[in-house]
């Protein structure tokens, strides 16, 4: 998928400020509770016997072969040509089967109990950054074409969510 813009997360940069969470909530008007993107933290023992912390923002990875899609019993989750996985809330019955299938814990459940999750800011312009990228103060969330990443960075950024905007942006071209 050359040319596909991807969103990538840099664990070496994330400092756990949760700005992405709040930016996402404000951008998508999410209620208290569900977190389309969430920064998680983990204590790690270093080689010298002292402790340190690791942070990582987690959102929906928009997997190429998303396990939530076959898990959904009502066909409410769809993946478009741009690879963005979206949920149709009118078909969702809130059974949370998708959450059990998702290894990333991405599906969230709002006050009505229906599934909602990261849309990669699908309502924004295809070339515009997502809210989380825009408001990350340390550049831990960035988007770009995979070939723009150095191999070093690519190694650091295990988690790459495909924000396949190619289809959206080059569709007309």
């Amino acid at each position: 998928m050359e040319g596909t813009r991807v969103l990538y997360f840099d664990m070496e940069r994330c400092v756990g400020c949760h700005a992405c969470e709040t930016a996402c909530k404000i951008e998508n008007n999410i209620s208290i509770g569900p977190k389309w993107i969430e920064v998680v933290q983990h204590d790690v023992l270093k080689d010298d016997g002292t402790w340190t912390m690791k942070f990582m923002p987690m959102n929906c990875r928009h997997c190429a072969k998303a396990p939530c899609i076959p898990a959904c019993p009502t066909g409410a989750i769809e993946q478009g040509a741009d690879r963005v996985v979206l949920v149709n809330s009118r078909l969702c019955i809130g059974c949370a089967e998708c959450l059990q299938a998702c290894p990333f814990g991405a599906p969230q459940f709002g006050p009505g109990g229906l599934m909602e999750k990261c849309t990669l800011c699908a309502h924004r312009d295809p070339e515009a950054p997502t809210a989380c990228e825009q408001f990350c103060p340390v550049g831990a969330i960035r988007s770009g074409r995979p070939q723009e990443l150095s191999s070093q960075k690519r190694k650091q950024c295990l988690f790459i969510a495909a924000a396949g905007v190619t289809a959206r942006s080059t569709g007309e071209a």
Partner: peptide, 9 residues
Amino acid sequence: SVRKRRGLL
């Protein structure tokens, strides 16, 4: 969700 996200990290 929290368990899975933490587990991944």
